[in-house]
Amino acid sequence: MATQKLASLFFLQQIIHVLFILHLANADHGLKLGFYQKTCPDAEAITRKITHQHISRAPTLAAPLLRMHFHDCFIRGCDGSVLLNSTKNNQAEKDAFANLSLRGYQVIDAVKSALENKCPGVVSCADILALVTRDAVSMIKGPFWDVPTGRRDGRESVASETRDLPPPFGNITLLKQKFAAKGLSVKDLVVLSGAHTIGTSHCSSFETRLYNFTGKGDTDPTLDPNYVVHLKRKCQPGDTTTLVKMDPGSFRTFDGDYYTLVAKRRGLFQSDAALLEDTETKSYVKLQANTYGSTFAKDFAESMVNMGKIGVLTGKAGEIRKHCAFVN
């Protein structure tokens, strides 16, 4: 009898332990859905309305806003540090070479201004960026996902730290390392790469693939030769101004066409081509290419939630900025 009681007690302790682990796993790093329900109940509705006003006039803003959120989360975590201006003594992230093509700061500022009028000192710039990104993507036929909120704003932004961003010339080993360092999976890597279904790129981001891949005046052999001819017509050596669509035909619409392009060896960057170097990522590319992106929208929503939790500041960490470009 005593043995049975001990066994029951041990089993109960195991269950409690498992439930505790599950609670930690679902704690979302201090974030939660409806974080502003009591302190600023209209926060998400106001954000959505203002984002809609901007995206309806300029749908191409969705891509750089998505990229801005990505670049924010990969440097210091999703703390709004990409929004800070440089100062006399410090060059901020937004002025680093990798971020010079980011656009859409005016959307974040407009939302912040409206929320400060409604609920002063309550909604963080980091949360605004996460919400605006979600709304902008959903407005160009992309998925909608629930954004857990409660992020607080960081007080530091250092341009040199943008070296931690996954580079467009990265091979699969480097890309996997960059994503793993942020707690993201290989699936998150291949899914979030699908963000290249919208937007444009400067020729300079892939020029080496066309004209000097190994330093001998050659082209990247993993790039479709016919596509090389097409790209060379658009991009002359040294061109730093011409923009090329990353997903020709639907660069303003969020869809699964990106994977069809990658499968045909027509991804614009080496990092796109790299997805065919790994068994897991290649399998995902082929699946989406063969099924017209059947699970891409759902997968992208899940990976965006995962990305939005990277290194967040919650509780009393950081601050709630009054203006997104300046610390308080």
Rank of each mutant, 00 (worst) to 15 (best):
S204C: 09
L276I: 09
C203V: 06
D278W: 03
G249N: 02
D257R: 10
L210V: 10
S193T: 12
L275M: 14
T242C: 01
T208F: 13
C203K: 07
F179L: 02
R252Q: 12
T253N: 05
T214Y: 09
M246I: 11
G293S: 07
Y211W: 12
L210N: 11
N226V: 11
T253A: 06
L174M: 13
T295Y: 07
Y227S: 06
S193P: 01
R266S: 08
T260Q: 12
S250I: 01
A289N: 11
K282F: 06
K234F: 00
Y284I: 12
Y211R: 10
E161H: 14
A181Y: 03
G183D: 07
T173N: 13
R209E: 14
N171F: 04
L189I: 01
P167A: 15
F254C: 05
E280V: 15
L261G: 06
L275N: 08
S201R: 02
N226I: 04
V229N: 14
G170C: 09
L231F: 09
G267W: 03
A181E: 15
L165C: 05
S294Q: 14
G199Y: 03
G194N: 03
L184N: 05
E277V: 00
T260H: 07
V229E: 15
S185N: 05
E280T: 15
R163Q: 08
T222S: 14
V244W: 02
V262K: 11
I198P: 00
L261E: 04
T173I: 12
F254A: 04
L174E: 15
S205C: 08
Y211Q: 08
A180T: 13
C203G: 09
G238V: 10
K232C: 11
N212F: 06
H202S: 10
D247R: 01
T260W: 00
L174C: 01
T242Q: 10
D220R: 04
G217M: 07
A289L: 04
D218P: 10
Y258F: 15
C235S: 10
T260A: 13
